[in-house]
Design a protein around this nucleic acid. Structure first.
Lengths: 216, 216
DNA sequence: CGGAATCCTCTTCGATACTG
DNA sequence: CAGTATCGAAGAGGATTCCG
């Protein structure tokens, strides 16, 4: 399958498993939670069912992901990361940090998905800026919601709405994308109504500090 | 060249540049210092000159590496990481940490090189274990030497001998490999003479603590 | 509907031979 | 020594089909 590099080196060994096309993006998809085959296809446009199937099989045999059956009432098959797979989070966050330079310089019409912000924001989170802060953010981007729970320097982020958000930002996905791309200031977006805010607006000011982009 | 994933996502954007075969291993090679074309070929057995040439060209055009002429008396062309390329260190260290599980479970005869330990040891370094410690280690593995300067929780590691090592470990590369692979205990290796130690032997005890493997 | 298997075309890789 | 050129082999991508 994946041609081995044949090197006694932890990086090469990791890349023997992860270096194939789509593999790390597939992990990114599963990092926000279990997903079905069709959801993975949707998050990885262009992959092709055969290749996705092959990648899933390989990763399962390597113990990085596992097939599960979602709890009732769903009761349908899905894929999730094993503990070993979860441990790849730091690799993806490091990649996200390095790659941020290529996204905060404008949006070019590429495919985008709100839930990717879960991983991206985890990557750009500045723990130091959150010391002593207790706050729950919810971002409602079109159909998708994500939540960010900040508790004194620690961040827990995930898919879906927050139970009790201190701040709720609602808007079109395009508006959020424009703000990440540096095309639109968040405060400006709220001023002209492209994004609406509910809750403690003081916390909005801190948002840019907690999740900085290159532009500042 | 590299087919783009076409996603507005920092991870996908990073992988657009780094996801090709050999690319991240090429970065690993340059992470320990500038190298000539032939040295890169030697560190990446199997790559093929055409592919190495193509990767170098692409990475240069992306501003991740740059061509230089080594200072006199060498005066020969070489490649080195740009600042942007240097910033990939955290990505490689994260990969090294995750991949360590695949190397500390025995050596299988794969190609290996002493200088890779510079990156691997940086990855496994436990800063907490080095608080208050000031020590310079040198590892002389066959022809290759690397040095590890520890200064109160901070590690600087690089190719070549140390100026004033507190501990000098000398041995065959095979012996060091065996110890990394968990096939041979470092203390045992010294007891039976496969690795010899010169200097403060107390610091040897701390070595396993500073650079732990999965086995402990 | 989910997902695995097949077929075909295209791109990329890998090894060797070759050139300034 | 530093790359180019070439070509067979392997992997990727897209469409379609089959099976539960």
């Amino acid at each position: 399958m994946s041609r081995s590099y044949g090197q006694f080196c932890s990086i090469a060994r990791a890349l023997d498993r992860l270096g194939n096309r789509w593999t790390l993006l597939l992990i990114r998809e599963l990092l926000v939670g279990p997903k079905r085959f069709k959801d993975l296809e949707a998050g990885l446009p262009g992959i092709g069912a055969n290749l996705l199937s092959a990648r899933l099989k390989t990763l399962e045999s390597e113990g990085i992901i596992q097939r599960i059956v979602l709890p009732p009432p769903a009761g349908v098959p899905a894929y999730e990361l094993t503990e070993m797979g979860q441990e790849l989070e730091q690799v993806l966050l490091a990649l996200a940090r390095w790659g941020q330079r290529y996204i905060d310089t404008g949006y070019d019409g590429d495919y985008v998905r709100g839930e990717w912000a879960v991983v991206a924001l985890k990557g750009s989170f500045r723990s130091e800026a959150a010391l002593g802060l207790q706050a729950v953010y919810e971002l409602r981007m079109g159909e998708e919601s994500i939540h960010l729970d900040i508790d004194n320097g620690r961040l827990t982020a995930g898919l879906g709405p927050a139970l009790k958000p201190d701040v709720l930002l609602t808007g079109d996905l395009n508006a959020f994308v424009a703000s990440w791309a540096g095309d639109l200031d968040l405060v400006e977006a709220i001023a002209d109504g492209r994004i609406s805010i509910k809750g403690d607006s003081e916390l909005l000011v801190r948002f840019g500090d907690l999740f900085p982009s290159r532009q500042g």
